[in-house]
Nucleic acid binder design. Structure first.
Lengths: 113, 113
DNA sequence: CGAAAGCGGTTTGTAATGCAAACCTGTTTG
DNA sequence: CAAACAGGTTTGCATTACAAACCGCTTTCG
């Protein structure tokens, strides 16, 4: 094992994936073979600029593949997850599960709100 | 409901809690009534400076309480979680659970590694 | 005794983020 | 032809996480 059980897992989280904006992107990509930039923009609520830079990081790390084509006369950018991306996300998910077990069980029994 | 289901939950994560170093601190505090600075330093592996500044943020946000006393002649800093801290952590945990459901199930069936 | 090492942290400096505004290249519309 | 729009990228900025340096005090050592 990498570290002592439990607590160490928190620090072992992959920061690249941990960032909410990026995690959102990866989550979308994981569920759809391929998505367009503009779709992600609307579904995520991220600004174009922000989305663009997160994409660059994911691409640089090899977690996604960015495909540029033309649809008719307009440029079109599509994102696809790579195998490495799937692995990174799976690993992250697993660590996250470990982390959650460390957190106290939120609902003892009663008390609705 | 706050947002559309699922995806929106990712962006709703509380960044203050989401930060691994801080999450670790909170996790430790959640499981122990009270912890000392030096204990946290060793258990977390964070540098003193880093730990100190994360503490300040958590304190400023009211998630933890910082108690300073003397043990014998030496200064001693202890951390304790506040009610707000417990709530914030519980909320975070809940959102995190929602996020995890969005991520693909990692293990299809076979393939050990 | 005085110096040096140690304890328990805080403050300061810095490189790396995350974010949106501004910009850019082309296309469509008025 | 000018102005608006589509589809992104680059730039500028404020925030951050992090460790190095520092600080006040105490204990140890020569």
């Amino acid at each position: 094992m990498t570290e002592a059980s439990g607590l160490g897992a928190v620090m072992a989280l992959d920061r690249l994936v941990h960032e909410p904006a990026r995690l959102l992107i990866l989550a979308v990509l994981a569920n759809a073979k391929e998505v367009e930039f503009t779709f992600l923009e609307t579904v995520s609520g991220l600004s174009k600029g922000n989305l663009s830079s997160h994409m660059s990081k994911l691409e640089a790390a090899g977690l996604i593949e960015v495909i540029k084509r033309f649809r008719g006369k307009r440029p079109l950018t599509e994102l696809r997850m790579t195998a490495a991306g799937r692995k990174a996300l799976a690993d992250y998910r697993q660590r996250l599960a470990a982390v959650m077990q460390e957190l106290p069980d939120t609902a003892p029994s009663a008390k609705r709100k």
